[in-house]
Design a protein around this nucleic acid. Structure first.
Lengths: 253, 253
DNA sequence: CGCGTTTTGCGCATTTCGCGCAGGTTCCTG
DNA sequence: CAGGAACCTGCGCGAAATGCGCAAAACGCG
Protein backbone atom coordinates (compact mmCIF):
# COMPACT_ATOMS: atom_id res chain seq x y z
CA UNK A 1 0.00 0.00 0.00
CA UNK A 2 1.61 3.20 -1.16
CA UNK A 3 -0.89 5.27 0.75
CA UNK A 4 0.93 5.02 4.04
CA UNK A 5 3.74 7.11 2.61
CA UNK A 6 1.20 9.75 1.68
CA UNK A 7 -0.24 9.69 5.15
CA UNK A 8 3.17 10.10 6.70
CA UNK A 9 3.70 13.24 4.64
CA UNK A 10 0.33 14.48 5.75
CA UNK A 11 1.26 13.74 9.34
CA UNK A 12 4.41 15.75 8.86
CA UNK A 13 2.37 18.65 7.56
CA UNK A 14 -0.10 18.31 10.40
CA UNK A 15 2.70 18.40 12.95
CA UNK A 16 4.17 21.43 11.25
CA UNK A 17 0.75 23.05 11.51
CA UNK A 18 0.56 22.38 15.22
CA UNK A 19 -1.38 19.12 15.44
CA UNK A 20 0.99 17.33 17.73
CA UNK A 21 -0.73 14.66 19.85
CA UNK A 22 -1.23 11.02 18.99
CA UNK A 23 -4.95 10.87 19.67
CA UNK A 24 -5.61 14.01 17.71
CA UNK A 25 -3.73 12.68 14.72
CA UNK A 26 -5.52 9.35 14.99
CA UNK A 27 -8.88 11.09 14.87
CA UNK A 28 -7.71 13.41 12.13
CA UNK A 29 -6.72 10.55 9.82
CA UNK A 30 -9.30 8.01 10.92
CA UNK A 31 -6.82 5.38 12.04
CA UNK A 32 -5.97 3.89 15.40
CA UNK A 33 -3.45 5.43 17.77
CA UNK A 34 -1.27 2.37 17.24
CA UNK A 35 -0.91 3.19 13.57
CA UNK A 36 -0.07 6.80 14.32
CA UNK A 37 2.46 5.61 16.84
CA UNK A 38 4.10 3.43 14.23
CA UNK A 39 4.16 6.27 11.74
CA UNK A 40 5.73 8.57 14.27
CA UNK A 41 8.27 5.93 15.15
CA UNK A 42 9.26 5.67 11.52
CA UNK A 43 9.40 9.42 10.99
CA UNK A 44 11.47 9.67 14.10
CA UNK A 45 13.88 7.03 12.76
CA UNK A 46 14.14 9.12 9.60
CA UNK A 47 15.01 12.11 11.77
CA UNK A 48 12.07 14.01 10.37
CA UNK A 49 10.42 14.49 13.74
CA UNK A 50 11.21 14.00 17.41
CA UNK A 51 8.90 12.09 19.67
CA UNK A 52 7.47 13.74 22.75
CA UNK A 53 5.28 12.31 25.47
CA UNK A 54 1.99 11.67 23.76
CA UNK A 55 2.91 13.35 20.51
CA UNK A 56 5.67 14.61 18.31
CA UNK A 57 7.39 17.78 17.21
CA UNK A 58 9.40 18.82 14.19
CA UNK A 59 12.96 17.64 14.45
CA UNK A 60 15.53 20.29 15.28
CA UNK A 61 17.19 20.95 11.97
CA UNK A 62 20.69 19.53 12.02
CA UNK A 63 22.25 22.57 10.46
CA UNK A 64 21.16 25.40 8.28
CA UNK A 65 22.18 28.96 7.63
CA UNK A 66 24.92 31.05 9.08
CA UNK A 67 22.79 31.99 12.04
CA UNK A 68 21.69 28.46 12.78
CA UNK A 69 25.25 27.23 12.72
CA UNK A 70 26.41 29.84 15.18
CA UNK A 71 23.42 29.24 17.36
CA UNK A 72 24.42 25.63 17.65
CA UNK A 73 27.91 26.54 18.76
CA UNK A 74 28.27 26.52 22.52
CA UNK A 75 24.60 25.95 22.77
CA UNK A 76 24.74 24.15 26.05
CA UNK A 77 26.95 26.84 27.53
CA UNK A 78 24.64 29.56 26.31
CA UNK A 79 21.61 27.82 27.75
CA UNK A 80 23.35 27.45 31.11
CA UNK A 81 24.42 31.10 31.10
CA UNK A 82 20.91 32.17 30.21
CA UNK A 83 19.44 30.11 33.04
CA UNK A 84 21.90 31.61 35.50
CA UNK A 85 21.03 35.11 34.32
CA UNK A 86 17.34 34.40 34.76
CA UNK A 87 17.80 34.14 38.52
CA UNK A 88 19.11 37.72 38.55
CA UNK A 89 16.04 39.21 36.94
CA UNK A 90 12.98 39.83 39.10
CA UNK A 91 9.64 39.31 37.50
CA UNK A 92 7.93 42.49 36.34
CA UNK A 93 11.05 44.36 35.31
CA UNK A 94 11.27 46.26 32.06
CA UNK A 95 14.14 44.73 30.08
CA UNK A 96 16.16 45.78 27.07
CA UNK A 97 17.24 42.64 25.23
CA UNK A 98 20.07 43.17 22.78
CA UNK A 99 20.68 41.11 19.65
CA UNK A 100 22.60 37.86 19.49
CA UNK A 101 21.92 34.20 20.04
CA UNK A 102 22.94 34.23 23.70
CA UNK A 103 20.34 36.85 24.47
CA UNK A 104 17.83 34.94 22.38
CA UNK A 105 18.45 31.89 24.56
CA UNK A 106 17.80 34.06 27.58
CA UNK A 107 14.66 35.53 26.11
CA UNK A 108 13.21 32.11 25.52
CA UNK A 109 13.29 31.51 29.25
CA UNK A 110 11.02 34.51 29.81
CA UNK A 111 8.06 32.63 28.37
CA UNK A 112 5.40 32.38 31.04
CA UNK A 113 6.79 35.30 33.02
CA UNK A 114 5.62 38.88 33.21
CA UNK A 115 7.85 41.57 31.71
CA UNK A 116 7.99 44.56 29.44
CA UNK A 117 10.54 43.82 26.74
CA UNK A 118 12.31 46.29 24.49
CA UNK A 119 14.38 44.52 21.88
CA UNK A 120 16.08 44.63 18.50
CA UNK A 121 16.50 40.86 18.57
CA UNK A 122 14.34 39.73 15.67
CA UNK A 123 14.26 35.96 16.30
CA UNK A 124 13.09 36.70 19.81
CA UNK A 125 9.92 38.36 18.63
CA UNK A 126 8.38 35.14 17.40
CA UNK A 127 9.25 33.48 20.70
CA UNK A 128 7.62 36.08 22.91
CA UNK A 129 4.88 37.71 20.86
CA UNK A 130 2.25 35.18 21.90
CA UNK A 131 2.92 35.50 25.62
CA UNK A 132 0.08 37.23 27.43
CA UNK A 133 2.32 38.38 30.28
CA UNK A 134 4.81 40.06 28.00
CA UNK A 135 4.50 43.48 26.42
CA UNK A 136 6.83 43.60 23.48
CA UNK A 137 8.33 46.73 21.92
CA UNK A 138 10.55 46.40 18.88
CA UNK A 139 13.34 48.83 18.12
CA UNK A 140 13.15 49.52 14.42
CA UNK A 141 15.97 50.34 12.07
CA UNK A 142 18.03 48.62 9.43
CA UNK A 143 18.17 44.84 9.56
CA UNK A 144 21.60 43.21 9.88
CA UNK A 145 21.06 39.82 8.29
CA UNK A 146 24.13 38.33 9.92
CA UNK A 147 22.87 38.85 13.43
CA UNK A 148 19.15 39.17 12.69
CA UNK A 149 18.89 42.37 14.64
CA UNK A 150 18.15 45.99 13.92
CA UNK A 151 20.40 48.98 14.45
CA UNK A 152 21.08 52.44 13.15
CA UNK A 153 19.63 55.89 13.73
CA UNK A 154 16.03 54.72 13.81
CA UNK A 155 16.76 52.23 16.58
CA UNK A 156 18.62 54.85 18.57
CA UNK A 157 15.87 57.42 18.11
CA UNK A 158 13.30 54.95 19.41
CA UNK A 159 15.51 54.07 22.34
CA UNK A 160 15.77 57.74 23.30
CA UNK A 161 12.04 57.60 24.05
CA UNK A 162 12.42 54.68 26.46
CA UNK A 163 14.11 53.61 29.67
CA UNK A 164 14.33 50.23 31.33
CA UNK A 165 15.21 48.54 34.60
CA UNK A 166 17.87 46.36 33.06
CA UNK A 167 19.83 45.74 29.89
CA UNK A 168 20.83 42.22 28.88
CA UNK A 169 23.49 42.19 26.21
CA UNK A 170 26.41 40.21 24.91
CA UNK A 171 29.44 41.04 22.79
CA UNK A 172 31.94 39.67 20.33
CA UNK A 173 34.64 40.15 22.94
CA UNK A 174 35.25 41.52 26.43
CA UNK A 175 38.45 43.04 27.78
CA UNK A 176 39.12 44.43 31.25
CA UNK A 177 39.60 48.18 31.02
CA UNK A 178 38.39 48.43 27.43
CA UNK A 179 34.83 47.20 27.72
CA UNK A 180 33.12 45.18 25.01
CA UNK A 181 33.92 45.09 21.31
CA UNK A 182 31.85 44.65 18.18
CA UNK A 183 32.47 44.66 14.45
CA UNK A 184 30.94 48.05 13.65
CA UNK A 185 30.62 51.46 15.24
CA UNK A 186 26.88 51.25 14.62
CA UNK A 187 26.69 48.25 16.92
CA UNK A 188 28.69 49.74 19.76
CA UNK A 189 26.87 53.05 19.44
CA UNK A 190 23.57 51.28 19.99
CA UNK A 191 24.95 49.22 22.86
CA UNK A 192 26.28 52.34 24.57
CA UNK A 193 22.91 54.00 24.29
CA UNK A 194 21.22 50.91 25.65
CA UNK A 195 23.52 51.05 28.68
CA UNK A 196 22.59 54.68 29.28
CA UNK A 197 18.92 53.89 29.09
CA UNK A 198 18.97 50.96 31.54
CA UNK A 199 19.36 51.21 35.30
CA UNK A 200 21.36 47.98 35.42
CA UNK A 201 23.60 46.28 32.90
CA UNK A 202 24.00 42.51 32.65
CA UNK A 203 26.43 41.03 30.11
CA UNK A 204 26.13 37.39 29.07
CA UNK A 205 29.34 35.98 27.62
CA UNK A 206 30.65 32.46 27.26
CA UNK A 207 34.24 31.61 27.97
CA UNK A 208 35.37 32.15 24.39
CA UNK A 209 34.52 35.85 24.59
CA UNK A 210 36.51 36.76 27.70
CA UNK A 211 39.79 38.50 27.05
CA UNK A 212 39.16 38.49 23.33
CA UNK A 213 39.74 41.68 21.35
CA UNK A 214 38.83 40.42 17.93
CA UNK A 215 36.91 43.49 16.84
CA UNK A 216 37.98 47.09 16.43
CA UNK A 217 35.00 48.99 17.86
CA UNK A 218 34.64 49.34 21.61
CA UNK A 219 31.96 50.38 24.07
CA UNK A 220 33.01 51.17 27.66
CA UNK A 221 31.07 49.50 30.42
CA UNK A 222 29.41 51.40 33.27
CA UNK A 223 30.95 51.65 36.72
CA UNK A 224 28.80 48.83 38.00
CA UNK A 225 27.69 45.91 35.88
CA UNK A 226 27.13 42.18 36.08
CA UNK A 227 28.92 39.52 34.09
CA UNK A 228 27.32 36.10 33.68
CA UNK A 229 29.70 33.55 32.23
CA UNK A 230 30.66 29.90 32.26
CA UNK A 231 34.35 30.69 32.32
CA UNK A 232 36.47 29.62 35.30
CA UNK A 233 37.14 32.23 37.93
CA UNK A 234 40.70 32.93 36.86
CA UNK A 235 39.39 34.10 33.48
CA UNK A 236 36.83 36.48 34.97
CA UNK A 237 38.53 37.80 38.10
CA UNK A 238 39.99 40.76 36.21
CA UNK A 239 36.46 41.97 35.55
CA UNK A 240 35.51 41.56 39.16
CA UNK A 241 38.47 43.72 40.12
CA UNK A 242 37.13 46.65 38.13
CA UNK A 243 33.59 46.81 39.41
CA UNK A 244 31.78 43.92 37.82
CA UNK A 245 29.73 41.46 39.79
CA UNK A 246 30.60 38.07 38.34
CA UNK A 247 28.03 35.26 38.29
CA UNK A 248 29.26 31.85 37.30
CA UNK A 249 27.12 29.39 35.39
CA UNK A 250 28.22 25.77 35.55
CA UNK A 251 30.16 24.75 32.48
CA UNK A 252 28.83 22.06 30.19
CA UNK A 253 29.79 18.45 30.89
CA UNK B 1 17.17 25.43 49.22
CA UNK B 2 17.98 27.91 46.48
CA UNK B 3 20.48 25.51 45.00
CA UNK B 4 17.83 23.88 42.85
CA UNK B 5 18.27 26.67 40.36
CA UNK B 6 21.88 25.71 40.08
CA UNK B 7 20.94 22.10 39.50
CA UNK B 8 18.54 23.03 36.77
CA UNK B 9 21.33 24.84 34.97
CA UNK B 10 23.53 21.80 35.37
CA UNK B 11 20.74 19.62 34.01
CA UNK B 12 20.54 21.92 31.02
CA UNK B 13 24.25 21.50 30.46
CA UNK B 14 24.01 17.74 30.90
CA UNK B 15 21.23 17.49 28.35
CA UNK B 16 23.24 19.59 25.92
CA UNK B 17 26.10 17.17 26.50
CA UNK B 18 23.94 14.18 25.62
CA UNK B 19 22.74 12.94 29.00
CA UNK B 20 19.07 12.77 28.21
CA UNK B 21 17.19 10.16 30.29
CA UNK B 22 15.51 10.70 33.62
CA UNK B 23 17.14 7.81 35.45
CA UNK B 24 20.58 8.75 34.20
CA UNK B 25 20.14 12.32 35.36
CA UNK B 26 18.80 11.12 38.72
CA UNK B 27 21.90 9.00 39.22
CA UNK B 28 24.15 11.76 37.93
CA UNK B 29 22.87 14.29 40.48
CA UNK B 30 22.08 11.91 43.31
CA UNK B 31 18.39 12.80 43.55
CA UNK B 32 15.23 10.86 42.92
CA UNK B 33 13.64 10.55 39.48
CA UNK B 34 10.70 12.53 40.83
CA UNK B 35 12.90 15.53 41.42
CA UNK B 36 14.44 15.24 37.98
CA UNK B 37 10.98 14.99 36.53
CA UNK B 38 9.96 18.17 38.30
CA UNK B 39 13.07 19.94 37.10
CA UNK B 40 12.42 18.86 33.54
CA UNK B 41 8.83 19.94 33.84
CA UNK B 42 9.94 23.37 34.90
CA UNK B 43 12.57 23.68 32.19
CA UNK B 44 9.99 22.53 29.71
CA UNK B 45 7.59 25.22 30.90
CA UNK B 46 10.36 27.73 30.33
CA UNK B 47 10.75 26.36 26.82
CA UNK B 48 14.39 25.61 27.47
CA UNK B 49 13.94 21.92 26.74
CA UNK B 50 11.30 19.63 25.28
CA UNK B 51 10.19 16.52 27.10
CA UNK B 52 10.54 13.16 25.41
CA UNK B 53 9.36 9.81 26.65
CA UNK B 54 11.68 9.09 29.52
CA UNK B 55 13.96 12.04 29.02
CA UNK B 56 14.36 15.43 27.43
CA UNK B 57 16.04 17.24 24.57
CA UNK B 58 17.11 20.79 23.90
CA UNK B 59 14.21 22.88 22.66
CA UNK B 60 14.27 23.68 18.96
CA UNK B 61 15.10 27.33 18.34
CA UNK B 62 12.37 27.84 15.76
CA UNK B 63 8.73 27.57 16.61
CA UNK B 64 5.56 29.58 16.47
CA UNK B 65 2.92 29.17 13.82
CA UNK B 66 -0.29 30.42 15.33
CA UNK B 67 -0.10 32.88 12.50
CA UNK B 68 0.54 30.09 10.03
CA UNK B 69 -2.92 28.69 10.67
CA UNK B 70 -4.64 31.89 9.68
CA UNK B 71 -2.26 32.32 6.81
CA UNK B 72 -3.83 29.22 5.30
CA UNK B 73 -7.21 30.93 4.99
CA UNK B 74 -7.89 32.12 1.46
CA UNK B 75 -4.38 31.14 0.68
CA UNK B 76 -4.99 30.59 -3.00
CA UNK B 77 -6.77 33.90 -3.39
CA UNK B 78 -4.07 35.76 -1.52
CA UNK B 79 -1.34 34.19 -3.62
CA UNK B 80 -3.16 35.15 -6.81
CA UNK B 81 -3.66 38.72 -5.62
CA UNK B 82 -0.04 38.97 -4.57
CA UNK B 83 1.14 37.70 -7.94
CA UNK B 84 -1.04 40.23 -9.75
CA UNK B 85 0.28 43.03 -7.57
CA UNK B 86 3.84 42.03 -8.30
CA UNK B 87 3.39 43.01 -11.94
CA UNK B 88 2.60 46.57 -10.85
CA UNK B 89 5.83 47.05 -8.94
CA UNK B 90 9.00 47.88 -10.91
CA UNK B 91 12.22 46.45 -9.61
CA UNK B 92 14.32 48.86 -7.59
CA UNK B 93 11.45 50.73 -5.97
CA UNK B 94 11.43 51.58 -2.29
CA UNK B 95 8.35 49.92 -0.82
CA UNK B 96 6.43 50.25 2.41
CA UNK B 97 4.92 46.85 3.24
CA UNK B 98 2.13 46.98 5.80
CA UNK B 99 1.20 44.18 8.18
CA UNK B 100 -1.12 41.30 7.41
CA UNK B 101 -0.91 37.91 5.77
CA UNK B 102 -1.87 39.19 2.33
CA UNK B 103 1.07 41.57 2.30
CA UNK B 104 3.27 38.81 3.68
CA UNK B 105 2.28 36.66 0.70
CA UNK B 106 3.27 39.54 -1.56
CA UNK B 107 6.55 40.08 0.21
CA UNK B 108 7.49 36.46 -0.24
CA UNK B 109 7.42 37.03 -4.00
CA UNK B 110 10.08 39.72 -3.70
CA UNK B 111 12.76 37.14 -2.98
CA UNK B 112 15.40 37.36 -5.65
CA UNK B 113 14.43 40.91 -6.64
CA UNK B 114 16.06 44.20 -5.77
CA UNK B 115 14.20 46.57 -3.46
CA UNK B 116 14.42 48.74 -0.41
CA UNK B 117 11.75 47.56 2.00
CA UNK B 118 10.27 49.45 4.93
CA UNK B 119 7.94 47.26 6.93
CA UNK B 120 6.22 46.56 10.21
CA UNK B 121 5.31 43.07 9.02
CA UNK B 122 7.24 40.86 11.39
CA UNK B 123 6.86 37.48 9.67
CA UNK B 124 8.18 39.07 6.52
CA UNK B 125 11.51 39.87 8.08
CA UNK B 126 12.58 36.26 8.27
CA UNK B 127 11.57 35.77 4.65
CA UNK B 128 13.56 38.69 3.26
CA UNK B 129 16.44 39.27 5.64
CA UNK B 130 18.73 36.82 3.84
CA UNK B 131 18.17 38.35 0.40
CA UNK B 132 21.26 40.17 -0.87
CA UNK B 133 19.25 42.40 -3.20
CA UNK B 134 16.96 43.63 -0.45
CA UNK B 135 17.68 46.35 2.06
CA UNK B 136 15.34 45.89 4.97
CA UNK B 137 14.23 48.57 7.42
CA UNK B 138 11.93 47.64 10.27
CA UNK B 139 9.47 50.06 11.79
CA UNK B 140 9.66 49.60 15.52
CA UNK B 141 6.92 50.01 18.06
CA UNK B 142 4.61 47.86 20.11
CA UNK B 143 3.97 44.35 18.83
CA UNK B 144 0.40 43.34 18.10
CA UNK B 145 0.44 39.58 18.58
CA UNK B 146 -2.75 39.06 16.63
CA UNK B 147 -1.35 40.45 13.41
CA UNK B 148 2.35 40.05 14.18
CA UNK B 149 3.06 43.63 13.25
CA UNK B 150 4.24 46.73 15.02
CA UNK B 151 2.40 50.01 15.47
CA UNK B 152 2.15 52.97 17.77
CA UNK B 153 4.04 56.23 18.23
CA UNK B 154 7.46 54.67 17.72
CA UNK B 155 6.48 53.25 14.35
CA UNK B 156 5.02 56.57 13.28
CA UNK B 157 8.06 58.49 14.45
CA UNK B 158 10.32 56.23 12.42
CA UNK B 159 8.08 56.56 9.41
CA UNK B 160 8.32 60.35 9.59
CA UNK B 161 12.02 59.96 8.76
CA UNK B 162 11.29 57.98 5.60
CA UNK B 163 9.56 58.17 2.26
CA UNK B 164 8.90 55.50 -0.33
CA UNK B 165 7.85 55.02 -3.92
CA UNK B 166 4.91 52.83 -3.06
CA UNK B 167 2.82 51.54 -0.18
CA UNK B 168 1.36 48.05 -0.27
CA UNK B 169 -1.33 47.57 2.32
CA UNK B 170 -4.50 45.67 3.03
CA UNK B 171 -7.44 46.20 5.36
CA UNK B 172 -10.16 44.50 7.34
CA UNK B 173 -12.71 46.10 5.08
CA UNK B 174 -13.07 48.53 2.17
CA UNK B 175 -16.00 50.80 1.42
CA UNK B 176 -16.44 53.28 -1.43
CA UNK B 177 -16.41 56.80 -0.07
CA UNK B 178 -15.24 55.79 3.39
CA UNK B 179 -11.88 54.24 2.67
CA UNK B 180 -10.51 51.30 4.59
CA UNK B 181 -11.38 50.18 8.09
CA UNK B 182 -9.44 48.53 10.88
CA UNK B 183 -10.13 47.50 14.45
CA UNK B 184 -8.18 50.26 16.19
CA UNK B 185 -7.37 53.91 15.71
CA UNK B 186 -3.72 53.05 16.13
CA UNK B 187 -3.88 50.88 13.04
CA UNK B 188 -5.61 53.42 10.84
CA UNK B 189 -3.38 56.20 12.10
CA UNK B 190 -0.34 54.28 10.97
CA UNK B 191 -1.92 53.40 7.65
CA UNK B 192 -2.79 57.01 7.00
CA UNK B 193 0.77 58.07 7.69
CA UNK B 194 2.05 55.32 5.42
CA UNK B 195 -0.14 56.69 2.63
CA UNK B 196 1.27 60.17 3.14
CA UNK B 197 4.80 58.88 3.01
CA UNK B 198 4.41 56.86 -0.20
CA UNK B 199 4.12 58.30 -3.71
CA UNK B 200 1.71 55.55 -4.74
CA UNK B 201 -0.78 53.46 -2.79
CA UNK B 202 -1.68 49.88 -3.68
CA UNK B 203 -4.32 48.04 -1.66
CA UNK B 204 -4.52 44.25 -1.77
CA UNK B 205 -7.92 42.88 -0.74
CA UNK B 206 -9.69 39.63 -1.45
CA UNK B 207 -13.36 39.51 -2.31
CA UNK B 208 -14.47 39.09 1.30
CA UNK B 209 -13.13 42.54 2.19
CA UNK B 210 -14.91 44.59 -0.44
CA UNK B 211 -17.94 46.49 0.77
CA UNK B 212 -17.41 45.26 4.28
CA UNK B 213 -17.59 47.74 7.14
CA UNK B 214 -16.92 45.38 10.01
CA UNK B 215 -14.62 47.71 11.93
CA UNK B 216 -15.23 51.12 13.44
CA UNK B 217 -11.99 52.95 12.58
CA UNK B 218 -11.52 54.38 9.11
CA UNK B 219 -8.69 55.76 7.03
CA UNK B 220 -9.55 57.73 3.88
CA UNK B 221 -7.80 56.75 0.69
CA UNK B 222 -5.86 59.20 -1.46
CA UNK B 223 -7.26 60.69 -4.66
CA UNK B 224 -5.49 58.13 -6.77
CA UNK B 225 -4.81 54.57 -5.65
CA UNK B 226 -4.75 51.03 -6.98
CA UNK B 227 -6.92 48.14 -5.85
CA UNK B 228 -5.79 44.59 -6.52
CA UNK B 229 -8.53 42.07 -5.88
CA UNK B 230 -9.94 38.74 -6.98
CA UNK B 231 -13.51 39.99 -6.72
CA UNK B 232 -15.69 40.18 -9.84
CA UNK B 233 -15.97 43.53 -11.57
CA UNK B 234 -19.42 44.36 -10.25
CA UNK B 235 -18.03 44.25 -6.71
CA UNK B 236 -15.15 46.61 -7.44
CA UNK B 237 -16.59 49.05 -10.00
CA UNK B 238 -17.69 51.46 -7.27
CA UNK B 239 -14.06 51.93 -6.32
CA UNK B 240 -13.08 52.52 -9.93
CA UNK B 241 -15.71 55.25 -10.14
CA UNK B 242 -14.04 57.23 -7.38
CA UNK B 243 -10.47 57.29 -8.61
CA UNK B 244 -9.10 53.83 -8.00
CA UNK B 245 -7.36 51.83 -10.65
CA UNK B 246 -8.71 48.32 -10.28
CA UNK B 247 -6.54 45.32 -11.15
CA UNK B 248 -8.24 41.96 -11.24
CA UNK B 249 -6.40 38.83 -10.16
CA UNK B 250 -7.79 35.54 -11.45
CA UNK B 251 -10.00 33.93 -8.84
CA UNK B 252 -8.57 31.21 -6.68
CA UNK B 253 -8.51 27.86 -8.37
C1' DC C 1 -8.07 -16.66 -8.35
C1' DG C 2 -4.26 -17.76 -5.01
C1' DC C 3 -0.21 -16.26 -2.57
C1' DG C 4 3.15 -13.34 -0.32
C1' DT C 5 3.92 -8.83 1.51
C1' DT C 6 2.58 -4.92 3.84
C1' DT C 7 -0.39 -2.58 6.79
C1' DT C 8 -3.68 -2.25 10.39
C1' DG C 9 -6.13 -2.96 14.80
C1' DC C 10 -6.22 -4.95 19.37
C1' DG C 11 -4.75 -6.80 23.91
C1' DC C 12 -1.28 -7.01 27.41
C1' DA C 13 2.85 -6.20 30.19
C1' DT C 14 6.02 -2.52 31.13
C1' DT C 15 7.47 2.04 31.66
C1' DT C 16 6.63 6.70 32.51
C1' DC C 17 4.00 10.55 34.06
C1' DG C 18 1.26 13.61 37.14
C1' DC C 19 -0.44 14.49 41.61
C1' DG C 20 -1.17 14.45 46.49
C1' DC C 21 0.96 13.92 50.97
C1' DA C 22 4.37 14.09 54.62
C1' DG C 23 8.96 15.36 56.24
C1' DG C 24 12.82 18.39 56.21
C1' DT C 25 15.43 22.76 55.31
C1' DT C 26 15.93 27.74 54.62
C1' DC C 27 14.69 32.26 55.37
C1' DC C 28 11.97 35.90 57.11
C1' DT C 29 9.68 38.21 60.74
C1' DG C 30 7.76 39.49 65.08
C1' DC D 1 15.03 33.33 69.71
C1' DA D 2 10.71 31.16 68.44
C1' DG D 3 7.14 30.75 65.05
C1' DG D 4 5.62 30.54 60.50
C1' DA D 5 5.73 30.74 55.49
C1' DA D 6 7.77 29.07 51.41
C1' DC D 7 10.32 25.79 49.15
C1' DC D 8 12.32 21.50 47.96
C1' DT D 9 12.44 16.52 48.33
C1' DG D 10 11.06 11.70 48.33
C1' DC D 11 7.40 8.19 48.09
C1' DG D 12 3.13 5.90 46.71
C1' DC D 13 -0.78 5.49 43.73
C1' DG D 14 -3.76 5.85 39.71
C1' DA D 15 -3.69 7.22 34.89
C1' DA D 16 -1.61 7.52 30.56
C1' DA D 17 1.57 6.21 26.95
C1' DT D 18 4.65 3.00 24.95
C1' DG D 19 6.42 -1.32 22.80
C1' DC D 20 5.55 -5.92 21.30
C1' DG D 21 3.24 -9.91 19.54
C1' DC D 22 -0.51 -11.76 16.88
C1' DA D 23 -4.36 -12.18 13.81
C1' DA D 24 -7.16 -10.00 10.27
C1' DA D 25 -7.53 -7.11 6.24
C1' DA D 26 -5.75 -4.76 1.99
C1' DC D 27 -2.83 -4.59 -1.79
C1' DG D 28 0.26 -6.13 -5.73
C1' DC D 29 1.49 -9.74 -8.76
C1' DG D 30 1.61 -13.85 -11.40
Amino acid sequence: MRRSGTRREAILAAIAAGEADVDGLAARFGVSPSTIRRDLQRLSAERAIARTYGGAMLAPMAEEQSLGAREGMNRGAKAAIAAAALDLVPEGETLILDGGSTIAAFGRLLRGRRHRIITNNLPLIALLADQPGIELVVLGGAVRPISMSTSGPLAEAALRCLTADRLLTSADGLMPGLGLCEATLEQVSLKSLMMQRAAAVTVLADASKLGRAGQPCWAPLPARWTLVTDAPERASEAFGAEGAEVVRAPGAG
